[in-house]
Design a binder for these strands. Sequence first.
DNA 1: GACCAGGCACATC
DNA 2: GATGTGCATGGT
Length: 220
Amino acid sequence: MQQPTDIYSRLLVAFGPQGWWPADTPFEVIVGAVLTQNTNWRNVEKAIANLKSAGVLTPSTLWQLSATELAELIRPSGYFRIKAQRLRNVVEYLMQRHSGSTDTMFSMDSNQLRRELLAINGVGPETADSILLYAGNQPHFVVDAYTQRVVQRHGWVAQGATYEATQRFFTAKLDTDVSCFNEFHALIVKLAKVHCRKAPLCQGCPLESVLPPEGPRGLV
DNA sequence: GACCAGGCACATC
DNA sequence: GATGTGCATGGT
């Protein structure tokens, strides 16, 4: 039976490093992590470009905006009213708990930070772990819907396994390596994009042995 | 025009 | 505890 380390190697050879997360600052990663919730990354890029143009892509400048002003800037990313409030919740935490410094925030114990992030309205496990891994370089494996499908179809975790159960599986099977965690999640997203249900697996595809058995929602 | 995209909170049962 | 629903834009 294939192991996560085998799959990781195959994906890395097939696709190469994905270079996540595309951002200039840790704060930009944090903003992107909220904006990308259930949203295509292309639309997130437009919203982030708006924030950059407006000169508000820092904790202190973003904090000056009203929810309405912020919502208008992030409109292209969808769910703009609720995301504006979620972003404000995160920035409020950053300003009040860490004086607006991401360096200060990431200097604390990452497990404690994760608990505090999860207590923010608008930050669930995937967003929290994305912030920890991609903004803070902390070894927290990010589990998304694709990852759940892959690991459940391989039988690595039970059907209906929780986020934390799947995360524990990867954490137990892989070396604690930020770059591996970083690339693995990004490669699974890449795999999902390449082998979507509109582009079924080609014959002799080098990734054939990577993919789990096809299920009702497609290959990945 | 349907379906999907790098989720989460909340209501209801 | 499990399931359903609202949130909303832009690309395919």
